[in-house]
Amino acid sequence: MSDGGERAERPFALVATRVRVEERMLFDAFRRRGAACEHVDDRSIVYRVGGPPPPWRAVLNRALSAIRRLEVSRWCAATDTPVLNSAVTLACCDNKIATSLALHRAGVPTPDTVVALDAAGGGRAVAEVGYPAVVKSVNGSWGRALARVGDPDAAEAVFALRAEMPSPVQKLGYTQKFLPGRDLRVLVVGGRAVAAVVREADHWVRNTARGARATAHPLGPELARLAERSAAAVGGGVLGVDLLEDAAGDLRVLEVNGAVEFHGLADAHPDLPVADLIVDHLLDATAGAAS
């Protein structure tokens, strides 16, 4: 870390493909802290291996493309540039199989999950996990490529389509038992659960990207602890933990988001300075790295 002194003079970077409401909130939070922060478009990054390190004090990585997002954090890790979220966290969060294995290892309850490494095994995976099942794409987000499968015919149809897809990643079978219940999200920043929302929609796919509404949900101790353990299991950072609460009140973690969209949560908790909490965590992590 020989250039620690020089680095302190550089601005922070907010890497973003699009500047949305969340990014505007984060820029405002940097301003409030008197910390210079510039917007960097992940599509514009070109670097030489072994060449100059990222010209920023630290990076808040909010690239929309999962692949570019990982590459940004990988470069930061290789050059000892503080970044949220880390490449380790992103690699885990952006792959549902990795997430399931990490959560299980940490003892976090999840829906029954069966993995098939190719579409050919998909039917067996669904039969193993039981009906109704949800078949998800390993790398999908925003509610894309989800299929609820009610019987073997439907499963066969889904995996026949998967088998046609060009890349091996798309042919991976990730199946979970479908459970009815309420969709909760908890924002965890720096190991601390900050706030929770419940997401309502008419369709069972309840991402706000597909039009769900988020309303405030109380953050009880059990929910907070579960969310914090999940965040730690995937590598920590700024994370959106998605949980299912069934009719009996039992909680299961569905996935952890490594570039969390928090406008719904911020709207539902108007007195909570969500962006400031995130920026403060980056500033603390940066100060910690420099010392």
């Binding site: 929309l64 999962a66 692949i67 570039a259």
Partner: peptide, 14 residues
């Protein structure tokens, strides 16, 4: 300067 926004790529998301 404005340009037609590029299509959402297949790996975009949280």
């Amino acid at each position: 300067v404005l340009a037609l926004a590029p299509e959402v790529e297949e790996d975009w998301g949280e």
